[in-house]
Every structure is written in C-alpha cells, then in structure tokens.
Design a binder for these strands. Sequence first.
RNA 1: GCGAAAGUGGCGAAACUGGUAGACGCCCUGGACUUAGGAUCCAGUGCCUUCGGGCGUGGGGGUUCAACUCCCCCCUUUCGCACCA
Length: 865
Amino acid sequence: MNERDQTRDKYNPQAIEAKWQAFWEQNSSFRATESDPRQKYYLLVMFPYPSGRIHMGHVRNYTIGDLIARFQRLRGYNVLHPMGWDAFGMPAENAAIKQNTHPRAWTYHNIDTMRRELKSMGLSYDWQRELATCNPDYAHWEQELFLKLYEKGLVYRKLSQVNWDPVDQTVLANEQVIDGKGWRSGAAVERKELSQWFLKITAYAEELLEGIQQLESGWPETVRSMQTHWIGKSHGLEFAFPIEGRSETLPVYTTRPDTLMGVTFCSIAAEHPLAKEVAARNPAAQQFILSCQSAGTSEEAIERLEKKGFDTGLRAIHPLTQQRVPIFIANFVLMNYGTGAVMAVPAHDQRDFEFAKSYQLPIRVVIQPLTETLTSDRMTAAYTGPGILCNSDRFDGLETEVAKQKIIETFVEMGIGRATTQYRLRDWGISRQRYWGNPIPIIHCPACGLVPVPVDQLPVRLPEEVELLGQGNPLVRHPSWKECRCPRCGQAAQRETDTMDTFTESSWYFLRYCCPDFQGPLDPQRVNHWMPVDQYVGGIEHAVLHLLYARFFHKALRDCGLVACDEPFSRLLTQGMVRKDTFRCPEHGWRYPEEVSQQGDGLCCIACSAPIQVGRNEKMSKSKQNVVDPNDIIQGYGADTARLFMLFAAPPEQDLEWNDHGVDGAWRFLNRLWRMVQEVAALPYQPPARSMPQEAALRLLRTKTHETIDKVTRDVQRFQFNTGISAVMELVNAVQEWLNPATASDRSPELLALLREAAEAAVILLNPYVPHVTEELWQLLGHAQPLCQHQWPVVDPEALQRDEITLVVQVNGKLRARLTVAAAADQAVVEAAALAEPAVQPHLAGRSIQKMVWVPGRLLNIVVR
RNA sequence: GCGAAAGUGGCGAAACUGGUAGACGCCCUGGACUUAGGAUCCAGUGCCUUCGGGCGUGGGGGUUCAACUCCCCCCUUUCGCACCA
C-alpha cells in the first residue's frame, strides 16, 4: 500500500494538516489587499504577549477568531485577519534578570516558537502584516504618535504614587507586591511619590461614556456595564468647609447633598496637603501617615484595609449649621478621586458608619425610609436608600431626590458651592521606570525645560548594552544613554528615562495592521479602508483597561486626523477562561496531570503513590500545575481535533472546562465524518440534489440537510458554535443511516444526489471549525478548487417546510400527550384530536374546561377546573 | 471593600421572543462483530415509582393557563479594580 492510499483509508491528521498548511501558504490564500472589490471585513483577535509557548487560552481565542474569519470569507467578504506580538513588557526583563538573557533576544526567540505553534493550528492569518511592538519601526511610529498627542495638550506630568521597594530601589507593579512585601527582596513596600507622565483620558470621559451606547448591539452588556461604572459619572455638590481658626478651607465633593445635615466629621486622604501640613508639626500624625503608606497603591488593597483614622485636631465648620466637626486623616480616602476629602455621614454611608463606630463619633439620622423609622442607637448598618429627610431643619419632609436639588440650589444661592459632575475615571499614567518598553521621546533641558525630540531624530532607541539586576531603573543606571544635547539650545541635556506603559502599544496595533509597511505612523487612506474592526475577539479580563484605553487612544488619533471612525471596535466577543481540575498530593503539593495515575476509583501520585485530592476546577495556570500543553494535543490528535473540542465543549463566553474524554469525543466525530464522506465519495456519482423529491423519507433527508445549513448559519452568527456542531453531528448521523448495509441494495439516483448534497453541506459547514480535514474531504469529493475559495451554502426555503409536525397537549400546563398532525392543522382540528386522546381524557373527567390556550405549531393547553 | 457575571442529569452542555427540560457529546451498563482499533455497530441511560403516575433547572417566595427563562430575597463560585498582559 503506498502512502497516498493509506491517507485515503484512514484519517491521518498529521499528514493532512501539513499538506493544507503548505497549500495555503504557497497560494497566499489568506492575503488581504485593499484593492479587492469585495466588501471588507476586519476580524481582530487580541495579540499575545510572547511569553514562551502558546497556552490553551490562546488556542481558544484564536480558534474562535479563525472560525469567524473563515466563515465570513466563505460568505463572500474580503477578510483582514492579522496577527502580531505585544512584545514589550515585564516578563522579558524578569527573564533577563533570572537567566542573564537579553530581553530582545528572549522575546524574539519566544516569537519564533509561538509563531511556529500558531501555524500548526492552521489559522488563516495574513502573515505578511505580522508586527512586533518591540520592533524599532513600531516604536518609532508610536513615539511620533506620542508627540502628536503632546502637541494636542493630551500629555502632561504630575506627581503620583508608586509601590516602592526600598531594598531594590525600584518601582514594583501591583502584582509584584505580595502581602505588602516586594516579591524579590521581601522588603515592606512603601508608597512613594514620583513625577510621572499622564495621558488625558479624562478629557474624553464624556465621549467614552456616550460611545458605549453606540456599541449597544455589538458589545456584551457586561463589558459596557463595567466600562460605564469604571468611568463612574456622578452628579453632586462641591463646596468647602471653613476650618476653625484658619483662612484656608477644605473643599469636598459629595453625591449625597441630601445627607448634608448628617455630617458629623470629615475625612481626608493621607496625601492631602492639609494632612502633610499637620504632620509637619505633629509626629503622631506623621507616624499615622507613614502607616497608611505601607499599604501599596492598588485600590483593592486600600479598600480592604481596616478603617483607621487620626484626629488632626482641626475642626471644620458646617456651612449651614455652623457646627464644629472633627477632621480625620483616614486610610481609605483616595487622593486621586474628587478633592481627596469627604464629608462623612455615618448614618447613610457604610464606610463612614464603620469609622464612626470604631472612633465613637456621633451618628445622626437625616433620611427616614418609608418602611421603618431609624434611630442612630439601634442601627447596625448605614441606610443608603431613598427616603424622607428629617433632622434637617428647613429641608425636613423633602424626598431625597428633591432634597438633593434644593440643597444644591441653597449652596449656589449662598455662593458657597456649585453643582458639579465628577468622573471616577482617572488620567492614564503611562510612565514606567523600566528598560523593556518604548522610550518617551522627551529631553529635559536645564534651560528650555521639556523639549520633544524632533520628529526627524526619531526613534529614540533603547541602548543594546544594559545591565538588568532588578534594582533601580536600568536606563537611569546606564553610563551614557541619557546624556544628550538639547535640540533647541544645544546645551548638555538628559533624555527622559521613563518608558511607556505597554497598554500604549495595544492601543493602536489594530490601526498599524492596516498599513504595516507605511513609512509614517498611519496611512489614513488604508486605515480608513479597513476600520472600524468588524469583530474583535479576546479574553474577558481585558473588559475595562485595554478596551477603554484603546477606545480613548483611537479617538485621540481621530482628532489628529489619522482615522475617521469614532469607535474602533464595532462588535466584541469576550471569551471565558480555560479551566481544569487541580491535583494535589499531600506530599508533593500541586501535581501536573501527567504526574498522576489512575488507581482503582481514585488517583494517586506517581512519585509517592499517595492518594491525590482532586481540587476545584480552576483557571489553567502554571502555579496550580493544571495546564495541558496545546502542542501535545495538536501532535497527538491534530489541530482539527483540538479546535473542534474547544468549540464544542462550551459557548465562547463561558468558561471552558478541559476534559480529556471530550477531546476523544471530538476525535471520534472527525473519524465518523471521515468515514461517512469516504463512503459517499465511493458511490456512483450524481450531482448534488437541487430540488425536493416526492417520497416522504427522501424529503425528510433533504429537510434535514437544509435545516442544518439554516441552523449552523444562524448559530455561527450568534456565536453559538457548540450547537452548530451538534446540528452537523445530527446530519452526519442521518446520512450514516442511509449508508447502512440494509439499505445498500436500493440506491436510486435521486437518493445518491441527496446523499451527496448532504455530505457536501456537512463538509462546507464544518470548514471554519476544522479547516484541514474538510479541505481534504472536499478534494476527495472530486472538487478541484480549494474549499477556502468556495461559497457558504444557501438554504432552499422549500426544504424547510415540514409536512407534519408534532405538537404537545397539556392539561393545566402538564404534558399529557403528543400529537403528530399536518403542518397546516388549525385549532379546531387539534382540539378535536386532543379531546379524543386516551392519555388526555382521564385528566378531563369530572372537570369543566375553562379555556384552551392555542400556540400554533407548538401546543394546546386545556385549562380545567 | 467596590464593580460585573455565572449556578440545569454522574460530566460538558441544549432549550432563539415565557410554550415538549436535558438536543448533541462524554462517562457508564448490556449486547453484536472482528482486519483487536485511539475500534466500530445496536440498545439503555435525570430521580423516584405501587408502572397509573409523581418529582425535578443553587435555596426560598411571587407573577402566569404555562417559568431554566420575568420579579423580590438569600447562598455559592468566578472575573476586574488603574504598574501582569
């Protein structure tokens, strides 16, 4: 038997996949060009960070993206489906410290590995548009974009807080702070203020918020809701408390002016100027502020703190009652929201309530709910709902919403406050004190101040020789890199040593894909040909930060004239995580799946034979050792099986549970498909059927074929890829029944045509899911043109007309019988048949019929009493 | 702490606008077959049952002729929280 015959007999994914990957590459099957007359479709998947190898999360993301890309190609679109590398970032630097490699070498090595792995999955990328963000070319155009934003006034510097490791003298990322300690040094982390670069995302807060409405039909509700809350628009009152015995005042912002008469103290952030001033002459206050600064900078860490405060001894004067209330420094007040100071109303704010309880501060009820009467001494929690004002002097009796307006009006009339709109959204700090990022192209001149690097001198390149020790900023420590001349006055000056946040690169890569070879940041003509992205696919973990930054950056570039559309991503699909059981050995801790063996009913550790505890299903991660290497699956079963399993096991938005048996099931289905098509291809040739036959059994087969086409088409469009597969499985099962030996003797040309139509439909419908095996089967069915250039099948509406339907008879909503009737049967006919049904009659005996609920095509419900 | 989701057989899931709960697949059980394969084929497979039927979608209430689906309360799990990407 020669090799070709062998591949014809048995499904051999390794041979088939290599063959078709080579074919697509040689024929540039997935090149996308702007000159193509067909309508464009831009399918974008979130580019990966080149961490070393691909993981199951990538496989899932890119399988989903590829399915949609291939589907839209078959539907006749000119599809742009690019891939690249989010190549700057901390892991390269960490690897450099640990293994003494250069970040660039490490990164490019990983890219080579991962590109090879992605290619083995048979993804239909236009690889000619591949880009890596660490490439000097990409960095160059990004620096130019930065300067454009700088000119537009969207870039500025201000002091802000960082996590500081006092031992390594370095800034730590939030994830590098573990239980308040630096991950490498173990030293207690301090908060420190540094002058940092910011992008004015807040200038676009309102537009970013309004834009969310535009995305209503294309973005998941959950992501829109998270972004809305993140932007956090609120309306409220801004006013200032006079401070007893002082000329300056304490400005505050509140969204609850209706609770104004319930203020019993004020809280200020540890970084508030007033707090600093108090600390300067009060060592105890200084001590307290220091203790606040040991918390780390993440909002989560701050909000989980035990609420603590320090009485400054200062007294604020209530602007309406002239009452004196204490001013506390509090560890939970954020300096970067509002004014860094809040009026505290313990009766109607939970944090203030807890704070008041621990410091024995008075609680004053000023809102009464409609259902009960609150008294301060019996409250166990703050009441934050609506109600009627009390203890509020002239505002008593007002409803909360009315009171808010009235009190704001009062402040405005008295000239001591104003209605303001506030956003929770903060400006985007892009400064990183790290080596492996894009340099900020600014020069600090002692005479001229901040001077942008002239465009013709870009890019600012990172020094190749660098010492990475995990201490300090490598660019500051470099002996000569930062030294330069001021472009304006020629004097000795210094380069900015901060590099940009890597979210900057991911904020415009989708625009660069449109014109990857353009000598300039962006070619508006080509960008506008492809933009906006028609479908974006990526992990739900990017719901807020990446997707909000990219929307902002895109709008800023629009205002620079580089792109026309307002929103970059018309539709968004967020896929869930890939999870797996965790295995734990009492002796050896977390165990990889291959370190565990089956022993009777349970599992045991291969090293010590101790029984394994099977833990919860968790996100695949190296730390929990519950990872499955995609390469093992691809090498063992082939990429098509891996893809099919991923798409079949769960709908894309849901978390996917890895299951070895499920992979076997996917493998077996592909073998079933393979055998079925082989058998059909071996039958005497008849062109595929194009019209309905007469015989009922044959009519049913054609109906099944077209119902499947209809269902898969709709399912793919609504991202229900798993049910699309089940539909094709049913079709394959139906065809297989006609291929059984029992019916082999009687195969009319009509049947042969119907079988071929069904087999071809199954192959085309599955092509976006499992592209290699379907190309091979398509060829086997005698087609000279590759399937990737074919068209998606069209439903014959006549074939969807069922002759008979089954409907349900209920009595009082309980199912009592099923009736098979002519599809056109009306209510009267069905009622008569239902009442005559033996299974129905006992439930009617001795009762009177109240009414009949008739749902055409579905059910008849007989309501009796 | 704040914000956002998700809970359906032994398992992954399905049920499109309130109208047959469990499609499709896995596991398992019984049988057939043999070119002993990663087999394949046939049958069964929510729970209980006196075989009439009864009960079932995290728990508790409600709306409706009819609720996995809509409303209220509770429980559990997951994701994000601005320097991981």
